[in-house]
């Protein structure tokens, strides 16, 4: 029930501006003391020109990077993504085991129900604010469509 309610609240108010839409921004609660955790969301280019996401910053963190997890032959590797091109009409999912925002060196511990203020930076100079909700990690039951 709680999850359902959260889903509704996300649906009700996607962040939208300048041909961009961000849905379901979230930061899973992380173990105490860890120096890095992740933020996830879905980013859609609702405009009619291609957009390039070139960086992310996060309040309360020393650094934030766009990262991609790849698992190949049983080896998990993370790599930085310098430019993420999003075509008009395209949605890009930042999700477990794929693209994610890596948040490094938090200044404070995460609290359930709190928020993390992210700013997405685009090549055209636009800075797009996103407020990600801190919530317990969703179990595996959610994520296995494939």
């Amino acid at each position: 029930m709680i999850r359902f309610a959260l889903a509704l609240s996300f649906l009700a108010a996607p962040a939208m501006a300048g041909g961009l839409k961000v849905e379901s921004p979230m930061v899973p609660l992380a173990p105490p003391g860890v120096m890095a955790h992740a933020a996830y969301f879905t980013l859609t280019n609702t405009g009619d020109t291609p957009r390039q996401l070139i960086g992310v910053s996060a309040d309360g963190y020393m650094m934030a990077h766009i990262h991609m997890t790849e698992v190949k032959d049983d080896i998990a590797t993370m790599s930085s993504v310098d430019v993420l091109e999003i075509a008009p009409g395209q949605s890009v999912a930042f999700e477990r085991g794929g693209l994610h925002v890596m948040l490094m060196r938090p200044s404070a511990a995460l609290e359930d129900g709190g928020t993390v203020a992210l700013t997405l930076q685009f090549a055209n100079g636009e800075a797009f604010p996103v407020e990600a909700k801190v919530m317990p990690m969703m179990g595996a039951k959610h994520s296995h469509g494939s």
């Binding site: 890095a36 992740a38 990262h67 994610h100 890596m102 948040l103 490094m104 179990g139 595996a140």
Partner: peptide, 18 residues
Amino acid sequence: FLSCPDVCPFTLGNLEAA
């Protein structure tokens, strides 16, 4: 490793459920 933001928490979360 602990500076692993994506795969390690995901794996441990799933192992907990499993």
